[in-house]
């Protein structure tokens, strides 16, 4: 009963998000063009790089396209289903969580979808187009790709949640957080071989971007079952860790030390 109520609440939230995006059609359309342009420029950079250097750590253009397609898809999914996670630091600063804390529905759901700002359908489509251009679309790989895309989304959402939750400790952190998310995105599209030695550990532990692109790529291109399991494991672990960081931060919010005396 409770679960059903929450699901229907989620549905109303999603509808409202769509409606809010449509309410600002013109601005939204311009933004979409800008966002796609922005991704296209970046892809172009890799074309230039691979013109100069044929292969980096075994990665060719095809790898970059898949990694980048996955990353854009992820970014789009996040913008559509959990845009509020990105603004978590600002929501904390503004005390918006107060309103959600007195709402009977799950806090994280309200944070993620309770305030619209971005909308991602265009980016989702662009990501799929890039993945299509990259090839590897077979009857086997399409379901696999959907699965890996979902995992990548969960990993990225977890990263955003975990690093955004630092806003419970750091004041005025919103701008820096956005910078982090952007850099995670960039790092996830770098060839895996770049992260060697201790860096390899960083990208599977405190900054688990490897589970977003690098490891799924092995599953997809090299048909590596082991990599598939690893992706699933990493995704789960990222989600659990991020939630734990968020809960810890929330404790601080509830203690009021975050704000001090306001009267």
């Amino acid at each position: 009963m409770v679960a059903k109520g929450t699901l229907s609440y989620l549905w109303v939230l999603l509808k409202l998000n769509m409606k809010a995006a449509l309410a600002l059609r013109a601005a939204y359309a311009v933004r979409t063009i800008f966002n796609i342009g922005n991704h296209a420029i970046y892809l172009f950079l890799w074309v230039v790089i691979f013109k100069t250097i044929p292969s980096i750590g075994g990665w060719r253009m095809e790898h970059i396209l898949i990694a980048y397609g996955l990353a854009i898809l992820t970014w789009g999914l996040l913008s559509f289903f959990a845009a509020g996670l990105r603004t978590l630091p600002r929501q904390i600063d503004e005390g918006s969580l107060d309103v959600y804390l007195t709402n009977p529905r799950p806090l994280l759901m309200n944070i993620a979808l309770g305030s619209t700002q971005y909308a991602g359908p265009a980016e989702i489509i662009f990501g799929l187009v890039v993945l299509t251009i990259a090839g590897h679309l077979t009857s086997v790989s399409i379901p696999l790709l959907i699965f890996l895309g979902l995992c990548a989304f969960i990993v990225f959402a977890s990263l955003v949640l975990a690093y955004g939750s630092l806003g419970f400790w750091l004041k005025d952190y919103h701008a820096s957080a956005e910078e982090m998310y952007f850099n995670f995105f960039i790092m996830a599209t770098r060839p895996e071989a770049v992260f060697h030695n201790w860096m390899g550990w960083v990208i599977v532990t405190i900054m688990p971007i490897a589970f977003m692109t690098h490891i799924p790529l092995r599953a997809l291109i090299d048909d590596n079952i082991y990599a598939l399991g690893l992706t699933l494991f990493g995704t789960t672990l990222s989600a659990i860790t991020a939630y734990a960081v968020f809960r810890t931060g929330l404790k601080r919010y509830e203690s009021g030390n975050r704000f001090g005396v306001h009267g």
Binding site: L97, D98, L101, T102, E254, G256, V261, G263
Partner: peptide
Amino acid sequence: PNGAGKSTTIKILSGILN
């Protein structure tokens, strides 16, 4: 007056603050 503890009380009563 400002900083008297009004909001703090209301936030505790509504479950926001511990």
